[in-house]
Amino acid sequence: MKFLLFPLVLVCLGLPLATSWAAGNSAVRIQVVDENGVPVRDAVVEITPASSSGNEFRFPWRAAMAQKDLAFTPGTLVVAKGSSVAFPNLDRVRHSIYSFSKAARFEIDLYGRDQTRSQSFPATGTVSLGCNIHDMMRGYIRVVDTPYAGMTDHNGIMSVAGVPNGRATVTLWHPRLRSPANESSSSITIAGSLSKKYTVKLK
């Protein structure tokens, strides 16, 4: 399966500090668009503060990727380092799962409808998934070690609150992003009232 490669632009905007947030934290709104200004959906955005504590955390969404209609659903999933991901089979046919990615190399044998298999992901990075029976099936798991991460919506926007003020690294990943490992990183300064626009042009 071939993907068109689009140069992407990352636009990072800060929102004013709300009274309900802890002192020294901010809300960050990130929008991802392509070179034509079209929003890019399902791009993974990670914000890693320089003062990251390394504490364990969980995301509010379920760590699960189903197999339905001969596709991985969702096609991309963001999970915390050390998470165990469930793979329920909702199809009438059997599926297997494999990955040769550096972050996780494994193979799950064939299993049938309404059955579930699980796999743990102890290392950060991108895990590309496939099915030995259905070559067109592709899925991606992005394993992160920061709680300030998520995927862009249909408007190309990812918003997160409670990000510590100060220096941080923003990492953008998308399977069609034309850069090494399909990701790009840049340094930013997060403040309680961040109004400056940060733009990164990618090759």
Rank of each mutant, 00 (worst) to 15 (best):
M1Q: 07
K2I: 06
L5V: 12
L8F: 09
L10A: 12
L10R: 02
L15C: 12
A18N: 09
A22G: 02
N25V: 14
N25P: 00
S26K: 09
A27E: 14
A27D: 14
R29H: 08
R29I: 03
I30S: 13
Q31Y: 11
V33I: 14
N36S: 15
G37P: 03
V38A: 13
P39H: 04
R41W: 02
R41V: 09
D42Q: 07
A43I: 06
V45M: 07
T48R: 08
P49A: 03
A50V: 15
R58G: 03
R58W: 09
W61T: 01
W61M: 10
W61Y: 10
R62F: 03
R62V: 12
R62H: 04
A63G: 13
A64Y: 08
A64S: 15
M65R: 09
A66H: 02
A66K: 04
K68S: 03
D69E: 13
L70D: 08
L70N: 09
T73K: 10
P74K: 05
P74W: 07
G75K: 08
K81L: 05
S83H: 01
F87L: 10
N89Q: 03
D91Y: 01
R92G: 12
R92A: 13
V93E: 05
V93F: 05
R94D: 06
H95K: 01
H95T: 05
H95P: 00
I97E: 05
Y98V: 03
S99E: 08
S101F: 03
K102P: 00
K102R: 14
A104Y: 00
R105Q: 10
F106R: 12
F106W: 13
I108W: 04
D109R: 11
L110P: 00
D114M: 05
Q115W: 00
Q115K: 10
T116F: 04
S120F: 03
F121K: 05
A123M: 08
T124M: 10
V127R: 08
V127C: 05
S128R: 15
G130F: 03
N132W: 03
N132L: 12
I133Y: 06
D135P: 09
M136F: 02
M137R: 00
M137S: 01
R138D: 09
R138E: 11
G139F: 11
R142S: 11
V144I: 15
T146R: 09
D153N: 15
I157W: 00
M158G: 02
M158H: 11
V160L: 07
V160Q: 08
V160G: 01
G162P: 05
P164Q: 09
N165C: 10
R167W: 02
R167M: 10
V170I: 09
V170Y: 02
P175D: 13
R176V: 12
R176A: 15
R178G: 07
P180A: 15
N182C: 10
E183Q: 14
S184R: 14
S184W: 13
S184D: 11
S186F: 13
I188D: 04
I188S: 04
T189H: 13
T189E: 12
T189F: 06
A191G: 12
L194K: 10
L194H: 14
S195W: 08
T199Q: 15
V200G: 00
L202T: 14
